[in-house]
Simulated scan of single mutants.
Amino acid sequence: MTAIRLRPVAPAAWLVLPLLILVLIGFDLPLLGVVWKSLFDGRGAFSLDAYYTIVDAPVYARVMGNTFRIAVISTLCCALLGYPLAYWLRGLSRRWQMVGLAAIVIPFWISILVRTYAWIVILGNAGIVNRSLLALGWTSSPISFLYNELGVMIGTINVLLPFLVLPLFAAMMKIDDSLLQAAETLGASRWAVFWKVFFPLSLPALLAGAILVFILTLGFYITPAILGGGRVPMIANMLDLLINEMPNWELASTISVVLLVATLALFVVYLRITRDERQA
């Protein structure tokens, strides 16, 4: 009989092993517990009743549909605002690029809770925006910016926009200027150079950033809870209600599993896009 030779484990693998165990215990086991609770009732018997409840009760489908719709709109707005901002930053000098990046990064130093409450001061009925509109005579009564989907999307875009701008700017900086200059020497206009050369090269980074923003929006909680005022139902707020108010752990776990599967699917797309970008 031939002896089976085991490949020696690299020393670096042993250094990573404690971290791997920590990740398994701290992150993966709770997720397995959520999956277990979605498939088994309180007596430990296998049951798919919670999944049937999600399908039969229209309120859960409506909340999930509302969450995905807000996530799509917020992601599109982030893309429409973030791409020109990243492109503008790329054209600045090195010093002004650092100033612009600092202006984007500094809000990360402030708590999301504080930044969210700041929007109440800005967009409230007696806030800066409404007082300015009334003073200019552009409106006869305060405009309702808060406690609706508009307020939720404004706050969400404000928090998540840097997650798209920063990686997109980094990807734009890697685009070789000689490619753009070569297109210009061949007679292409600046408009044609942008749409035919620059935009296709930056598109994978834009899509990857958009998917990242979309995934983060699906699980957003603080901003919708405060700026929505309980009037904009989203998945995270519904989970808070199911866990802390009702409580119904089986149904909350089932909704979490559905959200997890959707997020993992989007994350796989994100990994494929970023992989293609690295290979390009």
Rank of each mutant, 00 (worst) to 15 (best):
M1K: 01
I4K: 03
R5K: 11
R7A: 15
L17W: 14
P18F: 02
L32G: 00
S38Q: 04
L39R: 14
A45W: 12
A50N: 04
Y52K: 04
D56V: 04
P58F: 03
V63D: 00
V63K: 00
T67I: 06
S74M: 13
T75R: 14
L80A: 10
L81P: 13
Y83R: 00
A86V: 11
A86G: 10
A86P: 08
Y87C: 07
Y87T: 10
R90I: 01
L92A: 05
S93G: 15
G100W: 03
P107K: 03
I120R: 10
I122C: 01
G127L: 02
I154L: 11
P162R: 14
L164A: 09
V165A: 09
P167N: 15
L168H: 11
I175H: 05
D176F: 12
S178I: 03
A183W: 08
R190H: 14
A192M: 11
F199T: 01
G209W: 09
I211P: 00
V213R: 00
Y221R: 02
Y221K: 03
P224A: 01
L239G: 09
D240L: 07
E245M: 07
N248E: 14
S256E: 04
V258Y: 02
F267E: 06
T274A: 11
E277P: 05
Q279E: 13
Q279T: 04
